[in-house]
Design a protein around this nucleic acid. Structure first.
Ligand SMILES: Nc1nc2c(ncn2[C@H]2C[C@H](O)[C@@H](COP(=O)(O)OP(=O)(O)OP(=O)(O)O)O2)c(=O)[nH]1
Ligand SMILES: [Mg+2]
Ligand SMILES: [Mg+2]
Length: 460
DNA sequence: GCCGTTTTCGGCCCGACTGTTTTCAGTCG
């Protein structure tokens, strides 16, 4: 079983434990273990095979979880999971993802109506029977019905690129709004868009936000924050408004991650301080210690400022305390790009346009690596065209100095591991990338042999 | 469940919004 599957078992068990009303801190440990294992580079299967090693060497895994992990590897499940599955079928789990349905509500629904699927829940709400339960009414029935609709049509998470378009439009509309959350942390995908506004009259900003033309639904709107669904895709946008003097604390809070925040706030508490989105305060006197800037907050906690991309509670706080944070790669560090296409195969720009774009990005060099002939649908190059194109690249280099262009090729690796073009032709080029575009689903051993054989090509 | 700046036992983040709540639980950020 691979790490992702193991993590899923732990995470699902945590969800079931939450429905069962178990200790929240124990549940947190299971969730944390799932996250740690999902991010762990080494397969637990191979760790388990090595004598003298133990799962407890992974932070967040103690004796209890190590035993559960051993059990999972041995038989595909573990005791507490089986115990939970006796109480609740796994089909209840998707209902926990519904907005407005938490573990308490779900447990009450399961116990009173004996529901086991989202379809069951939909029926209960449509028949207006939810309101017969204490603390549940018509509003919740409607909210759940909307949530079910949303769940069925939503893509779940969105690419950073898509979110970035929505952010820009909202920034234009709102004037000043700073992106926070997973967007600021630069995650590949975001669950929603989190925007921060400081120093403005909250009521006015939230009013304007809710009136944004693309808003499809206002999920919540209070004195300090609001949440809406926007556009055809229905992406959620959360807007928080805070005073100007709280900018640093607000940005820190809203950037997260949640786990990073919890760690930071625990650290504050150990220092007789309390941290929230308004600032860092002394416990007791309430005296303000920091809050205008993020740097000020981290500094007052004995930490170097931590780049948002690292704020995942995976060791960055310890590194910041030790002054051992890594220097992150910046765009300005990128000197060139060795995988590019042009119209010669399936790209959209010419060699000249690509070189000019690279110059504008401040690159020193690029390699044009168009496809080879096997990729016929991309109009891949045969030997003759590849050599001719290389000649054009060199001609270009003679006439233009700013960016050096390497004459390259993205050469198909055939099923037997041989290269798509002859070695004679490849030898004429500066740079050859090997790619698998066919027979992707062959046996892993055969695939490995194929790649090893390809690596024997002197040009690759 | 885990973990150790006080700790091998006792903590484990803190605040906003909604609803049928009449004093706060549940959910969510
Ligand atoms: N202190 C604290 N902050 C939280 C909590 N939940 C969320 N936050 C903060 C940190 C999050 O990064 C930020 C935005 O919340 P989101 O739910 O949108 O999460 P985030 O953007 O990190 O991930 P996402 O891609 O939206 O799933 O709010 C919490 O339980 N406690
Ligand atoms: Mg978010
Ligand atoms: Mg959010």
């Amino acid at each position: 079983m691979d790490n992702n599957e193991i993590a899923r078992l732990l995470s699902e068990t945590a969800d079931l434990m939450e429905i069962a009303g178990e200790d929240p801190f124990r549940i947190r440990s299971y969730r944390n273990a799932a996250a740690v294992i999902e991010a762990h580079p080494e397969p637990l299967e191979s760790l388990a095979e090595q004598p003298g090693r133990s799962f407890t060497e992974i932070p967040g895994i103690g004796k209890g979880l190590a035993a559960a992990l051993a059990e999972i590897l041995a038989r595909g499940s573990f005791e507490r999971r089986d115990e939970m599955l006796e109480k609740y079928p796994p089909t209840v789990l998707p209902m926990l993802r519904l907005q407005g349905v938490g573990p308490k509500t779900l447990r009450a629904l399961i116990e009173h109506f004996h529901i086991s699927t989202m379809d069951d829940l939909e029926r209960i709400c449509a028949e207006q029977r939810l309101r017969t339960l204490p603390r549940m009414g018509a509003k919740l029935e409607e909210k759940i019905l909307r949530s079910i609709q949303q769940f069925r049509q939503s893509a779940g998470r969105f690419t950073l690129d898509f979110a970035s378009g929505v952010v820009q439009e909202l920034q234009q509309y709102l004037g000043e709004a700073v992106p926070a959350g997973s967007f600021r942390r630069g995650k590949e995908t975001v669950g929603d868009i989190d925007l921060l506004v400081t120093g403005a009259e909250p009521a006015a900003v939230l009013e304007r936000f809710a009136a944004y033309p693309a808003v499809k639904e206002v999920l919540a709107k209070g004195e300090n924050k609001a949440s809406v669904r926007v556009g055809f895709e229905g992406i959620q946008v959360d807007l928080r408004v805070l005073p100007a003097e709280s900018f640093g604390a607000a940005l820190q809070y809203f950037t997260g991650s949640k786990e990073h925040n919890v760690s930071l706030r625990t650290r504050a508490a150990h220092r007789e301080l309390t941290l929230n989105e308004y600032g860092l305060f002394r416990l007791g006197s309430g005296e303000r210690v920091a809050g205008e800037t993020e740097e000020g907050i981290y500094e007052a906690l004995g930490l170097a400022w931590i780049p948002p991309e690292l704020r995942e509670n995976s060791g960055e706080i310890e590194a910041a305390a030790a002054g051992a944070l890594p220097r992150l790669v910046e765009r300005s560090d990128i000197r060139g790009d060795l995988h590019m296409h042009t119209r010669e195969s399936d790209g959209r720009a010419t060699l000249e346009e690509m070189a000019e774009a690279a110059r504008e990005l401040g690159y020193e060099y690029i390699a044009i690596t168009d496809h080879s002939k096997s990729l016929a649908m991309a109009n891949g190059l045969d030997e003759k065209r590849a050599v001719e194109f290389a000649r054009r690249v060199r001609e270009y280099n003679r006439r233009n100095g700013a960016v050096h262009v390497f004459a390259g090729l993205e050469c198909d690796i055939k099923r037997d591991g041989s290269m798509d073009l002859s070695e004679d032709a490849l030898a004429e080029l500066d740079f050859v990338v090997g790619s698998v575009h066919s027979y992707m689903n062959i046996d892993p051993r055969e695939m490995t042999d194929r790649l090893l054989r390809a690596l024997e090509s002197p040009s690759l």
